[in-house]
Nucleic acid binder design. Structure first.
Lengths: 157, 157
DNA sequence: GATGAAAACTTTATAAG
DNA sequence: CTTATAAAGTTTTCATC
């Protein structure tokens, strides 16, 4: 069931840690940083990519400058809980610009959604113009993020 | 109060969109993709970096292969709600490997925390060995992510 | 594993239409 | 804005210790 993964060593971890912070490091800089020869470092990095440990390299944008300074966490319960209704709602959420993450969850609510907006005014607009236009919502509850204490795109290795 | 940002045009947006998907594009590939000359594309990209629209470039790792296949969303209320207690708890959370995101939030709970673990067994271990060792928790509630419908690190421009 | 080296490509800067 | 050019640096492959 679970794919057999090779054990990672400290050098693999150091490479991933460095590239998680800065994907634009040249191989020479990376090798220096992790204390390997350039060839060894190059081979390891390619291996980590090929084996799928490194899924890709992406640019991170500044939410604030783009007019999405605020994060709201939104719990949603739907009227119906059949497979189809749940999947449809998720697919609709996924099309919305403001939606950064959407999870079908266990517990009192059906969905947990992370939304980026510009203040309470932006959130009101998001609810009115986008979320409440999707059919099938029974109840929702919003939590404004007052302060972000940590936010990393993937786990620290 | 809000810094005056220049208006982004379609070319800026196309560059950011492309680099959000693949930060390893060469300038020549990027220029081709967004339909600009290489010089124009190069100048725009540097400008977007210098102005801070592009915050950086990072590697995304495969959570599953690293043994953190499951996402749990965790709401926490603390015993005390003074500034100091809230900040301390957030700082402690931020040190934990499993914690990907942690927000101080408005509403019934104090914190909303996104955790990456390996199954219910991994979550139990996280609670016992890490979360419950932090003092001051009054109440917590967990939602296991059953399905991820969307997950992007920054807003689509 | 390490080191060296060569070819192809990229980055960065600058000049000119 | 474009096209063109050029030096310096990087990627990628490959041979050898």
């Amino acid at each position: 069931m679970s794919p057999k993964n090779r054990a990672l060593d400290n050098q693999d971890r150091r490479i991933m840690r460095a590239l998680q912070k800065n994907a634009r490091l040249s191989n020479a800089e990376l090798a220096e940083l992790v204390g390997m020869s350039t060839t060894a470092c190059w081979n390891r990095t390619r291996q980590l990519e090929n084996e799928g440990y490194i899924r890709g390299y992406v640019a991170l944008l500044d939410q604030q400058k783009l007019g999405f300074a605020d994060i709201v966490l939104l719990e949603v319960t739907l009227d119906r809980h059949d497979d189809d209704a749940l999947a449809r709602f998720g697919a609709e959420l996924a099309t919305l610009t403001e939606v950064l993450e959407a999870y079908l969850v266990s517990g009192d609510y059906d969905y947990l959604v992370k939304v980026a907006v510009d203040g309470t005014a932006g959130y009101e607009r998001f609810l009115r113009e986008k979320l409440y236009k999707i059919a099938g919502i029974r109840h929702s509850r919003s939590m404004f993020a007052l302060r972000c204490m940590k936010s990393i795109p993937s786990v620290q290795v």
